Amino acid sequence: MPSVEQVENELKNIRYRKKFRSTLFSTVSILIVVAAFAVLVSTLFFPVVQVAGSSMEPTLKEGDVLILIKSDNVSYGQMCCVSWQNKSLLKRVVGLSGDVIDMDSDGNVYVNGELLDEPYVEKKELGRCEIEFPYQVPEDKIFILGDQRESSVDSRSSAIGCIGKDQIVGKVLFKVWTKE
């Protein structure tokens, strides 16, 4: 027959195991709920993308991780992510609906007759261009360009052209991680 002390120790161990299981279960449950919430928020409101390619250098480098905000309300100079043929493209908004875009052989961009100030472009160049300038941006479309003009595939390409508002994944909110 066990002593009273042994019975008390065994009851203490049983209560400890029960409390441990309860704490473990509630912690795991909370982590699952938080993870599900984070996935839901990132999918619906704040998508996360990683930069692939060099078309936005020096502003964005390959491997940078960005937080976007889901919105098709973009303005001049903003960087946005657009969906094109199941790919995500990060580019800069240069023209909105109705704007007349012109680009000279030196790579200077004019929007509605005014020279665009582009301090983010290191080397201005016409690059690969398959459209004729001056070009008027169609209704409900935006004209996008990469910062690395000689290698960027953007609205100057007839394959991409102007982007519809329904193709905008979101605009860049901030950079989370920079690959150095």
Rank of each mutant, 00 (worst) to 15 (best):
P2I: 09
K12R: 14
I14M: 10
Y16S: 14
S22Q: 14
S22W: 11
F25H: 07
F25R: 14
I30N: 12
V33K: 12
A36H: 00
A36Q: 06
L40V: 10
V49M: 11
S54D: 12
L60V: 02
I67Y: 05
K70E: 05
G77T: 12
C81H: 03
W84L: 05
V93K: 04
G95L: 06
L96Y: 11
D99R: 04
D99C: 08
D106A: 14
G107C: 10
N108Y: 08
Y110T: 10
Y110C: 07
G113I: 13
D117G: 05
P119N: 06
Y120C: 11
E122T: 15
E125Q: 09
G127L: 07
C129P: 05
E130L: 03
I144G: 01
L145R: 08
D147T: 05
R149N: 10
S151T: 14
V153G: 01
R156P: 00
S158N: 15
A159E: 15
I163S: 02
G164S: 14
G164F: 07
K165G: 03
K165I: 04
K165Q: 02
I168Y: 03
G170E: 05
G170S: 04
V176M: 15
V176W: 14
T178A: 12
E180C: 05
E180H: 12
E180T: 11
